[in-house]
Amino acid sequence: MSEKKFSFKKLMEYYDEVLSLPHRTEVARELRDEDDLFMLLIYSDMLGIPNPAFYYTLELYPHILEKFHDWHLRMGMEKSPLDGIRCC
């Protein structure tokens, strides 16, 4: 009995996974866009946009470096486009 219940649960999980696959992708894309915007705000000073909080956001530098590397690869740039950030 318990095995039957388990297999039904698995079936529903599979079903849910099938149907939510494209939706998850879109939500992930939307969230990634938000992250990109956040990154722009953090590094805005390096692009010439004055950022009064730059002193503090600079502290995030080591945490966000890996994400920045992913971002410039995703944007089709082999190397970091900013001189101040040497991720690769």
Binding site: Y14, Y15, E17, V18, L19, L21, P22, T25, A28, R29, R32, D70, R74
Partner: peptide
């Protein structure tokens, strides 16, 4: 692999998604 467009997916799940699309 980027967690958005490129995501390795189980073949059953992918078949289900492909079929419904």
């Amino acid at each position: 692999k980027d967690g958005v467009d490129f995501v390795p997916t189980n073949k059953w799940v992918l078949w289900g998604h492909h079929f419904t699309s």
